[in-house]
């Protein structure tokens, strides 16, 4: 089970609202490579992951992704505070605003709501961990793209932290995949599925 800690993993203190930027960054909440999907992916996959080290990685990274989701929400929240109706119109925030006001709702930058269709839980450890490696790179890519449009240091600083975490997670999933393969038949990793086939 989980318990909540009343702190962010890394501080978020943004002075200047910027709803145009918030509309991009919210994709890391509800978008195809976002933190919500990441948390659900890893925390779903761990039940059928066969080896303790890999279960530990999925549990601990999945938990960290929940903390990243909170950071993204904090960033979006602070970027959309105290807006005037004119700012909402001028910065293209009106379509989101009309449905959600300044509430946090998991959507992609394109406005498409979050969907479990953005991830898999295959019950096959090599397939799952390979997806996880790709997922970390896709999230890193999104942070790189967000940084192209971010000239506010208050925003770029926590975004850079989150980007760096994707790279660390990629490394750790690589370790986990290696451990899974070390437990398998080195002549044919696909000879059987260790989380399903009896051996």
């Amino acid at each position: 089970m989980w318990s909540y800690e009343k702190k962010l993993q890394y501080p978020v203190n943004i002075k200047n609202p910027n709803p145009k930027l918030a509309k991009l960054i919210i994709t890391q909440y509800g978008g195809p490579d976002g933190e919500l999907g990441a948390a659900m992916r890893y925390l779903s996959q761990r039940y059928t992951m066969p080896y303790n080290e890999a279960i530990g990685i999925l549990t601990d990274i999945g938990t960290e992704e929940l903390a990243h989701m909170e950071m993204i929400c904090a960033i979006v929240h602070q970027l959309t505070k105290g807006l005037t109706e004119q700012e909402i119109i001028d910065q293209g925030f009106a379509p989101y605003f009309v449905d959600h006001t300044a509430g946090l709702y998991p959507v992609a930058a394109s406005g498409v709501p979050w969907s479990a269709n953005t991830f898999q839980s295959t019950g096959d450890p090599i397939a799952d961990l390979s997806e996880d490696l790709a997922a970390e790179q896709k999230a890193r890519k999104t942070y790189d793209n967000i940084l192209r449009f971010t000239d506010d240091r208050d925003v770029a600083d926590p975004i850079r932290f989150l980007r760096e975490r994707e790279i660390v997670h990629f490394q750790r999933f690589g370790d986990a995949l290696r451990i899974v393969q070390d437990n398998l038949d080195y002549k044919n990793f696909y000879a059987y599925n260790p989380s399903f086939d009896k051996r």
């Binding site: 089970m1 761990r46 039940y47 080290e53 279960i55 530990g56 549990t59």
Partner: peptide, 19 residues
Amino acid sequence: TANAAGNKDWSWVKGAWPW
């Protein structure tokens, strides 16, 4: 919890998981 795991070895990944 993971915070209570690290003494002599990393016991977090030893033993059964709750599910």
